[in-house]
Simulated assay, not measured.
Amino acid sequence: MSHAAVPLAGALILGRSRLSWPVIATGLVFAMLPDADVVGFRFDIDYADSWGHRGATHSLIFAAVAALFAAAVLRPDRYIVAAVFLFIAMASHGLLDMLTNGGLGAALFWPFDDGRYFAPFTPIAVSPIGISNFISMRGIKVLSSEAIWIWIPLTLIAAAGLGIRKRRL
């Protein structure tokens, strides 16, 4: 759920004058959508496969295509702003996953490169797959890690951005 913090912060910074509710809602969904690839486990798609967990759906190309498609469907007044917002919302998922300390990394550059990558600094505790595994001491450690490395910094960034935006009005 912490992936939604990125578009939430972006929506607070940009404001309703630049983003419509449908665009904001789509951004929140897009931020979490790449993890829908876990359905592949049920179909025997290997984790390390291009379409496995943290594969193609975590790539920048996937985020760009999805953002352009959604912006075309939503037809917002500010098309470019909406498309960039949606791209950042979805692309941030793979980028945040690169900051985790487990898994195989994210296929950020798929289809040009099937490699999985981590950032040089991986401070975020990797989340267990599945709700039942999350409700545990490990889940609590993940939540505290995400609070420190995602929620607190984005709250400060959103507050600063909101303050700057209010000052300009």
Rank of each mutant, 00 (worst) to 15 (best):
I61G: 14
A83C: 12
L68F: 11
V81E: 13
A71S: 14
L74T: 02
L99C: 09
F112H: 09
A83N: 05
A107C: 14
I88W: 06
V65D: 14
L108I: 06
L86C: 05
A64W: 05
A89S: 11
N101Q: 07
D113L: 11
L96V: 14
F87M: 04
N101L: 09
S92N: 04
L108A: 02
L86F: 05
V81P: 05
T100W: 01
Y79C: 14
V81C: 13
R75Q: 15
I88Q: 09
S92H: 01
L68Y: 12
A72G: 13
Y79K: 13
A82H: 00
L60W: 02
D77W: 15
L74C: 06
I61E: 10
A63K: 05
L68W: 13
G94N: 04
L95S: 06
S59E: 03
P76R: 00
D113R: 07
F69Y: 14
S92A: 08
G102A: 10
A82F: 05
H93Y: 10
T100A: 04
M90P: 02
F69N: 14
A63I: 08
A72I: 14
V73G: 08
D97C: 07
A63R: 04
S92T: 05
V73R: 08
A72M: 12
L108D: 00
A82C: 15
P76Y: 00
L60T: 04
V84R: 05
G102L: 09
M90T: 13
P76I: 02
L99G: 08
P111I: 06
A91E: 04
A64H: 04
G94Q: 01
F87T: 00
L104D: 11
I88E: 07
G105H: 03
V81R: 13
I80H: 13
H93P: 07
A82V: 04
V84M: 12
A89E: 06
M98E: 04
A72H: 12
Y79M: 15
A72F: 15
A70M: 09
L86E: 01
A66V: 11
A82W: 00
L74Q: 03
D77P: 15
G94S: 06
P76Q: 03
V81S: 10
A66R: 03
A70W: 03
W110C: 02
D77Q: 13
L95P: 05
T100I: 06
V84Q: 08
L96M: 11
A72E: 15
I80R: 15
A106S: 09
L95A: 11
P111C: 10
